[in-house]
Computed example of a mutant assay.
Amino acid sequence: MPEALSKTFTAAGLLAALVVSGCSSGSSTGSSTEAGADGPITVDAGDTNCDVSTTQIAAGQHTFSVTNSAGQVTEVYVYADGDRIMGEVENIGPALKRELIVDLPAGTYQVACKPGMVGNGNRTALTVTGATPSAATLDENLSNAVDDYKKYVNSEAAALVDTTKTFTDAIDAGDMDKVKAAYPAARLHYERIEPIAESFGDLDPLIDMRIDDATDGTTFTGFHALEQLIYEKDTLKGTSDLAQQLDTNVEKLQTVIKDVDFTPLVMGNGAKSLLDEVAKSKVTGEEERYSRIDLVDFAGNVDGARYVYTALRPALQEKDPALVKTLDERFPALVDLLETHRAKEGEAGYVTGSPYVSYDDLSKDDVKALAIEVDAISEPLGQISGVVSGK
């Protein structure tokens, strides 16, 4: 068992230990009934199945009601061609239910259930037909929120390109100290926009894949391949080509992000996805397993989610002031707790380039406290999509 997993705790079912298991990539058989009735599309996410109540639906906004019938924590994705993520819901404990609201234009999709939150998952084909209903005109608050968030994402994408270049330039110069000083900054900017980056299923793995995703036909590449060489193997040998590829791919990401159709629903789903990512791999110490800068990634995910909430807050205040009151309390509590783990150079637990202590410096109680705060904000944050979509 990796050392990181020895510090993993369960907080109200959110943080089940990750179980590494093989997942079928074959489609399961669901109903072929044309969707026409109101109500959610049900998804039974089992250990070997992903049964969807209907596999033909009309274009538009749909709610997927997911029940985890598997014996382990699961996640469910709706993929377009090329495994582009249209929507996702993660960290669903056994016997629990979660909802996913997603806009789907006409086309072919796959619903993927991933027991253990690994692999390609059990998949069911989904066909969407007809013209997409005209989008409702956004009120001023929602329109301003979308504009603000689009600027934020594009700004972070530009910063990701710049900080990654600083990192790779240091690699090319053979300066290990500068390499380690530059790595955390690049990771921070990626983590702030992770759900948007992940929506590009063919590009994101080239940037952020972990060694678990590498197979005989898939080369380990991206940030974490470099991280392993630099921090675990303490070498810059073999990093030059990887660094060049990383520069190319983050530049491609910056380009394609400019064409993303941002909506309040995309924003709400993204904010929830960011906190799911914290629970899935940051608070468990699985993301930065060589550098141990997991709290930098944690902070980046929280920053991104908080920006979404701040942008949407005026609209949420009109529609659900009770939700705003809750999130106004929960975000500062989470941020304040994270701030207690800051470290400066020369202090115990300091990692070069990181404002936070090494994950290995956290006690079991520290990890448990962080997990509890993530759990406390996860459920109310998940309500944002329903509120802004009118569901």
Rank of each mutant, 00 (worst) to 15 (best):
S6W: 03
S25P: 06
S25G: 15
G26R: 12
G39K: 14
I41K: 06
V43L: 02
D51T: 12
V52L: 09
T54N: 13
Q61G: 02
T63Q: 06
S65F: 00
D81N: 11
R84H: 12
G87F: 07
I101W: 05
L104D: 13
Q110E: 14
G116W: 12
T127V: 12
N141M: 03
K151S: 15
Y152I: 04
A158Y: 01
T166S: 12
T168A: 13
I171F: 07
D172E: 00
K180Y: 06
A181D: 12
A185Q: 04
H189K: 15
E191F: 04
E191H: 05
I196T: 14
S199N: 07
I207T: 09
D216C: 01
T218H: 06
F223C: 02
E227T: 03
I230D: 09
L236W: 10
K237H: 08
A243V: 08
Q244H: 12
V250S: 05
K252L: 10
T255R: 14
K258G: 04
T263S: 15
L265E: 10
G268R: 08
N269E: 03
L274Y: 12
A279V: 08
G285M: 05
G300H: 05
G304Q: 07
Y307A: 14
R313M: 10
L316G: 08
D320W: 10
K325H: 03
T326W: 04
E329G: 15
R330V: 11
A343W: 07
G349A: 02
P355Q: 03
Y356F: 14
S358D: 09
S363P: 03
K368H: 13
A369E: 13
A371T: 10
I372Q: 15
D375E: 14
